[in-house]
Simulated scan of single mutants.
Amino acid sequence: MIKLIECPRDAMQGIPHFIDTAIKAAYINQLLEIGFDTIDFGSFVSPKAIPQMRDTEEVLSLLDLHHSKSKLLAIVANLRGANDASHFPEIDYLGFPLSVSETFQQKNTNKSIQAALEELEEIQNVCEVKGKTLVTYLSMGFGNPYGDPYSPDMIAGFVEKLDQLGVKIISLSDTIGVANPDLITELFQIQKQAYPHIEFGAHLHSTKETIGEKVLAGLKGGCERFDGALNGFGGCPMAKDELVGNMATEVMIQTLESAGHDLQLNKVELKEAMKLTQFVFNEV
């Protein structure tokens, strides 16, 4: 079954004005009613780096998880964040951004790729001890704007290293929205054939006009999970000055259902969440 991961954290993190904690929690609680596989709800990172997420622990305390089938994912950028997040039994997944671009790894986490890989190994150990699952995002997985080396063979090399560390979920991330359908299909086909035991996902950024073709390209290549945000809000504030929006979840839903996938979502609750986005993201 195809998994949808809704990412309010990614939608909110680049907004300069602080969104009230109660508003964040109310919005995520509404998302929890819809039936998404996972909610990427917050991050355990330095508040200096991502001030919008400084209240993640408080937001978590306000979430009503009793009647939701959705799991929770929190982003961490280092071992300290992983240790902090791992204390919360409500959190199922820890997400770690590993860039295939040396420049972006430095911009995003202030460390080299080699140092990030060493830290990722430690975070994987924390996850195994604490009963969490590590989701590794291969940032700039479809190219980068810095002129750093990039090729599909590089992606294969990174996946091989992650497989050796026991990572079970890898999300190929188009951080700046440059992926085309042919490359999307190619990358997923290569990785899925080589590592059928790994769950591969897509964290793509896109304009609304090209979302459908990118989702279909991912499906063709064997992608099993898709990240998105309602109305396509958000983007990576560390990538470049002009944010490229997330994949609009409502468009992905339409595309996936038209392709014959039953996502088992509560459309009434989805409609209510769509209304809330106008308040959460347009009134801050």
Rank of each mutant, 00 (worst) to 15 (best):
F88M: 07
S70G: 05
L65C: 12
S139N: 15
I91V: 12
H87M: 09
Q105I: 02
R80W: 04
C127V: 02
I113L: 10
L62T: 09
L98D: 04
K107E: 10
N144I: 07
L65D: 08
Y93H: 05
V129S: 11
N110I: 09
A85W: 03
S61G: 10
Q106T: 09
N108E: 03
L117S: 07
G143N: 11
N78L: 06
L138E: 10
T103E: 08
H66R: 14
A82F: 01
Y93I: 01
E121M: 01
A115M: 07
P97N: 02
Q105V: 02
N110V: 07
Y146P: 10
Y146R: 13
L72C: 10
T133I: 06
L134Y: 06
S68P: 15
Y137I: 07
T103F: 07
H67P: 02
L73H: 03
D84I: 00
V135E: 08
K69V: 13
E102T: 05
Q114V: 08
A82T: 01
L63S: 14
G131H: 04
E128K: 14
L73N: 12
Q114I: 10
E102L: 03
E118V: 06
E119W: 05
V126C: 11
L120F: 05
A115F: 01
I123N: 12
A115C: 04
K111A: 06
F88G: 04
Q114H: 14
H87D: 07
K71Y: 11
L120G: 03
L63C: 12
N83V: 01
L94Y: 00
E122M: 08
